[in-house]
Write a protein that binds this DNA or RNA. Structure first.
Lengths: 209, 209
DNA sequence: GTTGCGATCTTGTCAGTGTAAAAATAATTG
DNA sequence: CAATTATTTTTACACTGACAAGATCGCAAC
């Protein structure tokens, strides 16, 4: 069980430590050794579980995608009847996630920090894709997909719609996170998001008709 | 003049070295000491010109914004008569810049790496803003602004239009850069960009009417 | 059981990093 | 030419990621 050696659940303890450090000190203060210190293990302990620092960051990012999906579904769940409200919920969840976990958000979209095959992405990313895709599919009145099914099963029009919506929402969240929208007064932000998602929702519905 | 001490133009030499390292080794291999080595000076020489590593990265990023603006204007210049072609040129320039200078693009939008006051951004960022803003103003048939004038001189509708367009284009370029759009076949990318910018162009024109 | 083996963790080490302080050298100013 | 300032080097330090070798533990096979 739990002895001096053999922590028992060191991997998750290290990931929790990583989250905590990212939230408090940011990516600057984030080091493998700092994670090890916070988990009360030696500096080389993480190596066995994650290989190198990119391995650690990859798993941190995947837990980030898990949180993002949870937030997305949480915000959409009460408004499943209203298509525009769904799209708005996606935008809202996205922006709020970026604000709550800024460093996680950055890491999740840093190809150079993540070590997974971009051609066959891990489960968490597939689930994120599927969640966003299903919003579009509901708009179009088409059957939803599970995260197991590949995007290849979708026709070109759907894919275009997905990435049109996603680009818009992602770009807004990203620019906002990085301080490029500071000239916008705070109360205007929600209005912009509302209008943008309204337009996206309309466009996707109209295209499907 | 040029002696063993007193390089003469060390600052620019270091920035050139920084560009070269970013293009060849990426942000991972980018260190102050590596830049110093490439410029044939001691490892502490950059300190006097840039303070710390964020100071160096900030100036690297500003030169990146210069290049981005140059590319934007270069692509728009032949199509100033066609509004949609202008918007498409913006999207194209943005995507091409991200592809040609991926690490610069990342750094330019990393608040944690840049040390400037986000409330009063440096000239290069103001010029970028102004360039994008003027595209929208031309769509609306309103007089253009110079980079000296603040965004505060614009009404709320214009600001919404700007950031709607920018979010879309930026998000697309960013997701593409970070490998999140790899499921899209290569030849489809330009079509999506074309359709998206067409819609943005239409929306902004219609709103102005 | 106990023997062995693989998984897990520690210790020690190495080259490399950013930053600071002090010294050395050059350019500029008076 | 003297003094001051700007630029660069040298030296030093604490820290990092990675590696190798060893210590300890869990567990399966016998």
């Amino acid at each position: 069980m739990k002895t001096a050696y053999h922590h028992g659940d060191l991997k998750n303890a290290l990931l929790d430590a990583a989250d905590e450090i990212l939230l408090s000190k940011g990516l600057q203060g984030f080091t493998m050794r700092a994670c090890a210190r916070l988990a009360n293990v030696s500096h080389a302990a993480p190596k066995h579980h994650f290989g190198d620092i990119n391995g650690l960051l990859t798993e941190v990012a995947m837990r980030g995608f898990d949180r993002l999906v949870a937030l997305l579904q949480n915000k959409m769940q009460p408004v499943m009847g209203d298509l525009h409200a769904q799209m708005y919920a996606v935008g809202l969840a996205y922006v709020e996630f970026a604000e709550a976990y800024p460093e996680h958000f950055r890491i999740m979209f840093r190809k150079d920090l993540l070590s997974y095959d971009t051609q066959s992405p891990p489960r968490q990313i597939a689930v994120t894709y599927a969640t966003l895709t299903n919003v579009v599919l509901r708009h179009r009145g088409e059957p939803e997909i599970s995260e197991i099914e590949s995007m290849a099963s979708l026709n070109g029009e759907v894919i275009k719609d997905i990435f049109m919506c996603w680009s818009n929402i992602h770009g807004y969240a990203h620019l906002r996170l990085e301080g490029q929208l500071n000239s916008i007064p705070e109360e205007t932000h929600l209005k912009i998001l509302q209008e943008n998602t309204q337009r996206l929702s309309d466009l996707v519905q109209r295209r499907a008709a």
